[in-house]
Design a protein around this nucleic acid. Sequence first.
DNA 1: CGCTCGGCCTGTGCGC
DNA 2: TGCGCACAGGCCGAGC
Length: 274
Amino acid sequence: MPELPEVETIKRTLINKVSGRTIKSINISLSRLIKWPTPEQFKAQLRGQKIVTLHRRGKYLLFELTDNLMLIVHLRMTGRLYYMPSSEPDDKYTRVVFNLDNGDRLLFSDTRTLGTLYLMPGDELWRISGLFNLGPEPLSADFTIEYFSSILKKRQSKIKAILLNQSLIGGLGNIYVDESLAIAGIHPERAAASLNDEEIVRLYESINSVIAKGIEDGGTTFRDYRDAEGKSGSHQYHLYVYGRKGEPCRKCGATIEYKTVAGRGTHYCPFCQH
DNA sequence: CGCTCGGCCTGTGCGC
DNA sequence: TGCGCACAGGCCGAGC
């Protein structure tokens, strides 16, 4: 479900609530989501740990704990992290509960159960290949126009597939890729290497601006996504193409089309994206 | 090495 | 209304 702006929003709505809290106990109702170490070790090692702070890298959330431990959470398609006051009940899809020292709880909820959790020392993060191989993120200092240009110029794959590849650029997903391409006026099936310098700059700027706007709007809520307080984002009201199949393009009025590109449902304007 | 595709899961919404 | 099928903010591993 969530992409960089949604995970960033969860981080921002959670960091002040959990920082300084100690995890008293853990309830696991679906143990296969715990990928490292074993669920028993996961519980035993987490018990009594204090949460120092919270980080985000790409679509991963990293809870920095005392004793050099890191709790890593990936929400995949439908995962949610909720901060729940002790008075409120769990939701139906709660899979892991972290009981905190103030009586409140941190819930990991997930309908499709594709989410993943890990616990390991901070110097063993290489065990998580998706995290270890993550490329530079939009809006970060290492996501330069030179870097972006260099990864496009040597690849014949469709531009959409390149933008979705987390080892090349960290944090983009299906919504923000479709939006970036629409804003830049580039067709999702173009070979990456076929983009000229002017198109590369346009796409680079579109990616950065749409991610910044997504964060500013608190993410995009289509169905599952909520922040750590259970609130929806508002970027769905500003989308150019995603979820707008059959509706008029905001730029030219042509009908937004939908087809599968790079294995994903893809929305685009057949008139203004070349 | 680079890339594409199927599989992992459950729920929902659409067309017939 | 009921049913079946396609599809859903993601990623990994197999196979070419």
